[in-house]
Design a protein around this nucleic acid. Structure first.
Lengths: 100, 100
DNA sequence: TTGACATATCGGAAAATGTAGATATAATGG
DNA sequence: CCATTATATCTACATTTTCCGATATGTCAA
């Protein structure tokens, strides 16, 4: 676990927002292709629509969150779905409690 | 509590380091004027010596940590002592657990 | 195969951050 | 008051981050 990379990923309003939206995806995203957002995740277009930013930026931000380990990715057909990695997020909380 | 400001403060190696040093100051700093580092804190010069950076940078980093609320300051004579604000740090951990 | 759509990546302009040196301010001892 | 020491602040420049438009890549459906 690289805490600096994690803190950097989290120190941006939009990325923090995305992570929070993903906590309760059905509250924040419009449904998509009948997939269960809770178990599969949401795709880049859904995030792009919510953020007020370009597809390029949304994709990059999701990448950054993923490289930091905060979200996981799954490609299904032409869509890429992203969802939280709760285990990694808990590890970060544990780090905060113990190391920091 | 401004989580973005907090994450920004933490997303720098040196500042994270300082915060960790301050967790057990007597392990990391050379004693100074007979003050109890645990209760009073450590002064800018002590931090400057540990960091391999200038006094200017040390002072600025301490400022950033303080503005974020992670450390508290106390001026005694010509020295300014800094120590962790454990309450604020716990709040951040709680935020991680609940909001993130 | 080709066209259309979803996503990723590249290159860049603008803004923010990192870090230093120079200087200002505060406090002390003489 | 003055010289000295500790800290804070200002200015500047290099590096990193933000966010975009353009373009490449992947995938499906006809």
């Amino acid at each position: 676990m690289d805490p600096i990379e994690l803190f950097k990923a989290l120190s941006n309003e939009s990325r923090l927002q995305i992570l929070q939206w993903l906590k309760e995806p059905e509250k924040h995203f419009v449904p998509h292709e009948g997939v269960d957002m809770r178990t599969i995740g949401v795709c880049v277009s859904q995030v792009t629509d919510k953020l007020n930013m370009t597809q390029s930026t949304a994709s990059q931000y999701l990448s950054i969150l993923q490289r930091a380990g905060l979200i996981r990715t799954e490609r299904i057909g032409k869509y890429t779905y992203y969802k939280r990695d709760e285990e990694k997020i808990s590890e970060l909380a544990a780090y905060l409690n113990q190391q920091l």
